[in-house]
Lab assay of single mutants.
Amino acid sequence: MTEYKLVVVGAGGVGKSALTIQLIQNHFVDEYDPTIEDSYRKQVVIDGETCLLDILDTAGQEEYSAMRDQYMRTGEGFLCVFAINNTKSFEDIHHYREQIKRVKDSEDVPMVLVGNKCDLPSRTVDTKQAQDLARSYGIPFIETSAKTRQGVDDAFYTLVREIRKHKEKMSKDGKKKKKKSKTKCVIM
């Protein structure tokens, strides 16, 4: 069974824990209790493949930012979460993405942009803004509501699919490099 290491990042209060708990335990946590770091595991079937999701729910508070490099190193894919009623959390996505790329030393890291709290009427981040940002990053965008469960499975499952595509691409690139290195030079 394939294991996928997913990391949920975003500013404090955007609903990272609520999304994760909704996926794992099928219930909505409405009281806000700032996370330092929590880890969850769940076995699911995605596109006919049974897999184990190892999900790291991270601290959004700035005082825990020193811990970010460590979990970013171990993560295979990242859910970059903002709240649709919090423009600052949307603007912060850029910083999370840049930090992930720096730590992973790669421009090509599996990510999904997630606009959470889409059940709320007080939207300050337009869907088109988020779609445009995701398009500019070359990553999928999904709106979710941890409260109603809308888009929750889709967000995590899409990230797994992005990781699969990335692994497939990397193995193809690896095979191309191996083929090239088999060419021999004969000096007579």
Rank of each mutant, 00 (worst) to 15 (best):
E63M: 04
E63F: 04
E63D: 12
E63L: 04
Y64P: 09
Y64V: 15
Y64I: 14
Y64H: 09
S65N: 12
S65I: 08
S65E: 13
S65M: 10
S65A: 07
A66Q: 10
A66E: 07
A66T: 11
A66N: 07
M67Q: 00
M67Y: 04
M67W: 11
M67I: 09
R68D: 14
R68K: 08
R68F: 15
R68W: 13
D69C: 02
D69R: 03
D69V: 01
D69L: 00
D69N: 04
D69K: 04
D69T: 04
Q70A: 01
Q70I: 00
Q70G: 02
Q70D: 04
Q70P: 03
Y71G: 14
Y71L: 15
Y71R: 01
Y71W: 15
Y71N: 11
Y71P: 11
M72T: 12
M72V: 13
M72D: 03
M72Y: 14
M72E: 04
M72F: 14
M72G: 09
R73I: 06
R73G: 06
R73M: 08
R73C: 08
R73H: 07
R73N: 09
R73K: 08
R73W: 07
T74Q: 15
T74G: 12
T74V: 14
T74C: 14
T74P: 12
T74H: 15
T74D: 10
T74N: 10
G75E: 04
G75R: 04
G75L: 07
G75Q: 10
G75Y: 08
G75F: 14
G75H: 04
G75S: 07
G75N: 05
E76V: 13
E76S: 07
E76R: 04
E76P: 01
E76W: 10
E76L: 08
E76D: 14
E76N: 05
G77K: 00
G77Y: 10
G77R: 00
G77T: 02
G77Q: 01
G77N: 01
F78T: 01
F78V: 07
F78E: 02
F78Q: 00
L79Q: 00
L79P: 02
L79H: 02
L79R: 00
L79F: 06
L79K: 00
L79G: 00
C80H: 04
C80Y: 14
C80L: 14
C80F: 14
C80T: 03
C80G: 03
C80P: 00
V81R: 00
V81W: 00
V81G: 04
V81Q: 06
V81E: 08
F82T: 06
F82S: 11
F82M: 12
F82A: 12
F82G: 12
F82I: 05
F82R: 00
A83E: 15
A83K: 05
A83I: 01
A83S: 13
I84E: 15
I84A: 14
I84F: 13
I84H: 14
I84N: 15
I84V: 13
I84S: 14
I84P: 14
I84K: 11
I84D: 15
I84Y: 15
N86C: 06
N86Y: 02
N86I: 03
N86S: 09
N86A: 05
N86F: 02
N86P: 01
N86W: 02
T87E: 14
K88W: 10
K88Y: 07
K88R: 08
K88G: 10
S89G: 08
F90Y: 13
E91R: 05
D92V: 04
I93R: 01
H95Y: 11
Y96R: 02
Y96G: 03
R97W: 15
R97G: 06
E98V: 01
E98R: 05
E98N: 05
E98P: 01
E98I: 00
Q99L: 13
I100L: 13
I100V: 07
K101T: 08
K101M: 12
K101G: 07
K101F: 07
K101Q: 09
R102S: 07
R102I: 06
V103L: 08
V103A: 05
K104T: 11
K104A: 13
K104L: 14
D105G: 14
D105T: 05
D105P: 06
D105Q: 08
S106D: 12
S106N: 09
S106M: 12
S106W: 11
S106A: 11
S106C: 14
E107R: 08
E107T: 11
E107F: 12
E107W: 10
E107K: 09
E107V: 13
E107C: 13
E107H: 09
D108K: 05
D108I: 06
D108Y: 07
D108V: 06
D108C: 06
D108T: 06
D108R: 06
V109H: 04
V109R: 03
V109E: 03
V109N: 01
V109Y: 08
V109S: 04
V109K: 00
V109I: 12
V109W: 07
P110E: 01
P110R: 03
P110L: 03
P110I: 02
P110K: 03
M111E: 00
M111F: 11
M111W: 09
M111I: 09
M111R: 01
M111D: 00
V112T: 02
V112C: 03
V112E: 00
V112K: 00
L113T: 04
L113C: 11
L113F: 13
L113A: 04
L113N: 00
L113M: 08
L113G: 01
V114F: 03
V114R: 00
V114M: 09
V114H: 01
V114I: 10
V114A: 04
V114D: 01
V114W: 00
G115Y: 06
G115M: 09
G115L: 10
G115W: 05
N116T: 15
N116K: 02
N116P: 00
N116G: 11
N116M: 15
N116Q: 14
N116F: 02
K117W: 14
K117S: 14
K117A: 14
K117G: 14
K117D: 07
C118L: 12
C118A: 11
C118T: 07
D119G: 07
D119F: 02
D119M: 02
D119E: 08
L120K: 08
L120V: 10
L120Q: 06
L120R: 08
P121Q: 12
P121N: 12
P121C: 09
P121L: 09
P121K: 10
S122G: 13
S122H: 10
S122K: 11
S122P: 10
S122V: 09
S122F: 07
S122W: 08
S122E: 13
S122A: 09
R123Y: 09
R123S: 13
R123W: 10
R123L: 09
R123H: 11
R123I: 09
R123G: 13
R123D: 14
T124Y: 10
T124G: 12
T124L: 09
V125W: 10
V125G: 11
V125M: 11
V125K: 10
V125F: 10
V125A: 11
D126G: 09
D126M: 07
D126E: 12
D126T: 09
D126S: 09
D126W: 07
D126R: 06
